[in-house]
Amino acid sequence: MVEDIVSIRLPVDETFRIRKNVIRNGAGKRLCVVTGIHGDELEGQYVCFLLNCILNQNPELLHGSVEIYPAVNPLGIGSIERGIPGFDIDMNRTFPGSDADVMTESIAHALVDDLAGADAVFDIHASNIFLTEIPQVRINELHRDTLVPLARQANMDLVWVHANSTVLESTLAYSLNSIGTPCLVVEMGVGMRLTGEYGEQLTNGILNVMKQLGMWDGEIASVKTPIVSDGQDEVIFLNAQSSGMFMKTKRHGSWVGKGETVGYVFDPFEGKVVEYVTAAKSGLLFTIREYPLVDKGSLMGRILVRGTEEA
């Protein structure tokens, strides 16, 4: 059953809608899958599709309701824009919103209102157009106790507990978690693209979480044990020292040794390598740059520092 969360007339003969598809079977818990806050991140689209297909084929295995919100920033998705078009702002900096003087604020407010009280929320992101990520859940340290046990069930490769910062307080996940609605932020793949295997992996993870919540009787393919970085591990950020074009030589998800090259920055104009990007310490290269053009300072990758490779 499709429901409107928000329905607002736009200036010229168009209605802005945020819609959700509610799939319900009997009484039970409520799980929500949200994606498209960033209009250029599409990996969640495939998850919504797969989850819908599975639930439609096996309605009797569901107990409770699954609510799918595939496009909470429909104008951004429709115009390949990360933020909200016409406002030039990041929707994930508008939460919890208000019923005040900017349309984006009232939209954010309505969305939080609608999601509040769910037993679990997945907010699916796809990094951005610059970086490719291994499937991971990101957790603000303030909400670690509730979320880490849930994230372990989500069939992801990595659970990264990171420090809080005031800026993050305007995200959807922060707003929901701070009112007691557990929300997991998933980052996987890359902006503007679909990665089939990641979509399947996360869909299986969502079904597994549903199973743990007593919402799903179906079979679950085997579930990965994630690497959990509980905030004690060091994460190294690799930043470009110069402007140029980047060629990666390591895939995201590779284990790299200290001093190993993960890619290089080249100058097509003069045919020179201007910089080799190397790992300062050994660990898991969980992020790698995808977009070739780099400025001095551009993020090239992230390494979770670990002495040895782990399963």
Binding site: I8, R9, L10, P11, V12, G86, D99, A100, D101, V102, M103, E105, S106
Partner: peptide, 11 residues
């Protein structure tokens, strides 16, 4: 020229 709904027009 165009304005959205739920937007401050004047303060």
């Amino acid at each position: 020229p165009l304005i959205y709904a739920h937007t401050a027009a004047c303060k």
